[in-house]
Design a protein around this nucleic acid. Structure first.
Length: 200
DNA sequence: TAAATGATGTCCT
DNA sequence: GGACATCATTTAG
């Protein structure tokens, strides 16, 4: 890949309405440098978590040590553990003080799929068709909490091919949220992409 | 200090 | 379709 393809998306890209960023991220490439190797995967599914007013968002009550990154400037990673075993990757959006983020729910291998398979040795699309699966395949965990993803050091995002069609629906696994937030179609995916996670 | 609870994945039937 | 693994974080007491 030419060097220009490695230029990270700038902070301004993330400093916008979260739903807009969640859309714009589809087709972009998540780039990871691990063990001296470069790996890239296309983002095919995202979810928008829209801050204090969104009862599905971890930051809707107040700032806590865990959610600190979401209150900070856009373009940083918000990584956390769910169910005691899975790391999930979010990218912080909107200005500092507005605790919003986009959850990356599924990716399609693009460059160096072998490295991903070594990190997560499973068959076919099981590799990265889910939020906890892709973090395993890209070696993303707590050590990347708060990482500045606008710098090409360990984890960043580069422009990709814009998808033809985008589909949307309710977010997954947020039964605890208020009905209006549960129903909001803030889960976005590339229509018909086979790497999209299975809906509940 | 203690208890409840997940922005999930895997294995079993 | 359902059970359950597994633990950091949060919230209650």
């Amino acid at each position: 890949m030419p060097l220009s393809d490695h230029a990270p998306l700038p902070r301004a890209f993330f400093d916008r309405d979260t739903l807009l960023v969640a859309r714009a991220l589809l087709g972009c490439r998540l780039v990871r440098r691990v063990n001296g190797e470069l790996v890239a995967a296309t983002i095919v599914e995202t979810e928008a978590y829209r801050g204090a007013m969104d009862t599905a968002c971890h930051a809707h009550r107040r700032e806590t040590p865990r959610t600190r990154a979401m209150f900070g400037p856009p373009g940083h990673a918000y990584v956390y553990l769910v169910y005691g075993m899975h790391w999930l990757l979010n990218i912080v959006t909107e200005p500092e003080g507005s605790p919003c983020a986009v959850l990356v729910r599924a990716v399609e291998p693009h460059v160096n799929e072998d490295a991903m398979r070594r990190l997560r040795p499973v068959k076919n699309r099981e590799l990265s068709n889910g939020p906890g699966k892709l973090t395993r395949a890209l070696a993303i965990d707590k050590t990347l909490y708060g990482e500045d993803m606008t710098r090409p050091s360990q984890l960043w995002v580069v422009k990709g091919d814009a998808p033809n069609t985008i589909s949307s629906g309710p977010r997954v696994g947020i039964d605890y949220a208020a009905p209006a937030d549960r129903d909001a179609p803030w889960r976005l995916w590339i229509t018909d992409n086979p790497w999209v996670s299975k809906a509940r």
